[in-house]
Simulated assay, not measured.
Amino acid sequence: MSDDDHKEAGAGPDLLLERVALGEATDEERRALQAKLAERGEDLDERLAALRSSDEEILAEYPAEMMAARIDARLDERRKAKEREARRPSRGGWYAGLGVLATAAVAAFFVLNLPGEQNTGPVVAGDQYTDRNGETVRLKGAEPKLIVWRKSGEEPERLRAGATAGEGDVLQLEYNAAGAAHGVIASIDGRGVVTLHYPAAADGSTKLDDGVVALGHSYELDDAPDFERFFFVTSNEPVDVARVTGALDALVASGKARAGLPELPEGTQHTDFAVEKQ
């Protein structure tokens, strides 16, 4: 048996799935995991999608302080598990610590920042994690994303993609650059109007900050019907704001503003977040 075979046998499918989710697996490991899941009648892409969905649910339900502590404990558990595996390779079986998988991946989306206090806990900023020992771990596989909150009474409500909103609702946008250096945030409403949210002006800087960052202003929905679709366009280089808004105007003109893909500048990627208008 080769060294890779020993590694495969000792790790187990769940640990390999974790490595794939974090972008740490080799092509050979990914193919091996895909084959192993196929033997069980499962699909690798579906398992990864389910993992990301689970991460979103955890993010919506638990405060950052609680999750940061859990992340730190789980990563410590993960390190100890790997040390045990190195000493005593296993011959298979599903790894029991599935919680490690979810919470380690969730780390890519959290920032713990306690104003006025010395932060002695784990810190996640963008795609980097700093544990309690000051060690920095780069979390591969994190993707830029938008986070949308609705001001509702005393407590803000985090919206899920596809949530229903109405005229007069006030939304607060946040972004997680996940390592991207530059970005533009804009939206299209049901009337086809394109609104620029970040930067504040077309000639403004597109530089993004690390971690989860709230825009400096909120956005009140008007009486435009059907939907409001927000786009977060990111790049490692400065982004041409006019070309992004122009691409969204072209998407409106094509009649595919609700679900189509804009033709964005080369070297950019994008994610979008839509709310349904009632």
Rank of each mutant, 00 (worst) to 15 (best):
E65V: 03
E65C: 11
M66F: 10
M67Y: 07
A68Q: 03
A68Y: 02
A68C: 07
A68I: 10
A68V: 12
A69M: 14
R70C: 12
R70G: 13
R70Y: 11
D72F: 04
A73V: 02
A73T: 07
R74E: 14
L75Y: 00
D76K: 04
R78I: 14
R79Y: 00
R79A: 13
K80T: 09
K80A: 14
A81K: 05
R84D: 13
R84P: 02
E85P: 00
A86C: 00
R87K: 12
R88A: 09
R88W: 14
R88P: 02
P89H: 04
P89I: 01
G92F: 05
W94T: 13
Y95M: 09
G97V: 13
G97C: 11
G97F: 12
L98S: 07
G99M: 06
A102G: 11
T103A: 08
A104T: 06
V106T: 03
A108K: 05
F110N: 15
V111W: 04
L114N: 15
P115W: 06
P115M: 05
E117W: 11
V123L: 07
V123K: 09
V123T: 08
A125F: 13
A125I: 14
D127Q: 04
D127I: 08
Q128D: 03
Q128W: 06
Y129E: 04
T130K: 07
D131E: 06
D131A: 10
D131H: 06
G134Q: 04
V137N: 08
A142P: 03
P144G: 05
K145I: 04
I147H: 04
V148M: 01
W149T: 02
W149G: 09
W149M: 08
R150I: 03
K151A: 08
K151P: 01
G153E: 01
E154G: 12
E155N: 13
E157P: 08
L159I: 04
R160F: 07
A161W: 12
A163S: 14
T164F: 03
A165Y: 01
G166W: 06
E167C: 10
G168Q: 03
L171W: 03
L171F: 02
Q172K: 13
L173S: 12
L173T: 06
